[in-house]
Design a protein around this nucleic acid. Structure first.
Lengths: 150, 150
DNA sequence: GCATTTTAGTTTGATACCAAAGTAACTGTG
DNA sequence: CACAGTTACTTTGGTATCAAACTAAAATGC
């Protein structure tokens, strides 16, 4: 009797992956949350990712890209691309660091601050609504757990 | 004295968003996990998302796309695009459902099963390594919390 | 049975994301 | 002060993701 390739993998293997994979669970939640916050922020012409980036710029010293990328969990090349539309709209300015000409600092502009004033208010509402939908300890448990991955 | 636009938003506002936003925390972790699993699965030519999709096909009845999209937390249009490279490689087949000609079922092929055999083994190792890096109750806490968002 | 509505999926156009390779500036060593 | 190595970012090419508009089939209503 010849060896035959089973038509499928073992059933329990599949269930294990499906029910335990933290990567899948995170991607799925990330897609859902992205759509949700993208929708809330649409009136400002900002995506959730653009909002997070703009928030990160809101500090006295404009941070260099090299610090922002790890903060956002993204690769430098992704940040380079993400900056472009925001710079084009005048919401942030890219400034070479005089101390190190390789480094570029991202400074939020007054237009950016003005836009973010409204966006932050909307974020507050959207986030409160989200937390209200989750169980009592869930938001904190998620924040703690997700921070461990970072 | 004229009204002036402050140069920045209030500092605590920014800190609140930065430290509590579940959307940001999830996107950040999702990026990091995606890179990690993409790297582990690279020998099979699969991304983490392709792996998850292939796993979901591993059931006696090939599931219709309409069930897969919610399972993966993605929009139907994204699933349509995701199917193409896998179908091109012969890892899955798109079959119109005879009962409902609008619906398309995705069937994993023997080639797909063969590839996934190795990929699942690698996933097991990668996932065990990830869990080992996290605190004792963290993986379960994350699974529970992320499932609430789904 | 035919028109309307709903449902399943696709297409299009735009942004997001990454790896790999490239450029330019800094650093350290001899 | 060269020059080798490193660091900061960019470019390129490819996939991922979505919203909005579209197509086609099924279900509903009359």
């Amino acid at each position: 009797m010849p060896e035959t390739t089973p038509a499928l993998l073992p059933r329990d293997t599949v269930l294990t992956v499906r029910d335990t994979c933290l990567c899948l669970a995170t991607q799925r939640a990330a897609r859902r949350l992205a759509r949700r916050f993208d929708a809330a922020l649409r009136p400002f012409g900002l995506t959730n990712g653009q909002f997070s980036l703009m928030v990160a710029l809101n500090r006295p010293e404009p941070p260099p890209m090299g610090r922002l990328a790890p903060f956002l969990g993204m690769e430098p090349s992704t940040l380079t691309a993400a900056v472009k539309p925001l710079a084009r709209r005048g919401l942030l300015a890219v400034e070479p660091d005089p101390e190190d000409l390789r480094s570029r600092r991202l400074r939020i502009t007054p237009e950016g601050v003005a836009l973010m004033r409204g966006a932050v208010a909307v974020w507050r509402g959207a986030h409160a609504a989200l937390e209200a939908e989750l169980g009592a300890g869930t938001p904190d448990a998620l924040r703690r757990g997700l921070a461990e991955i970072g």
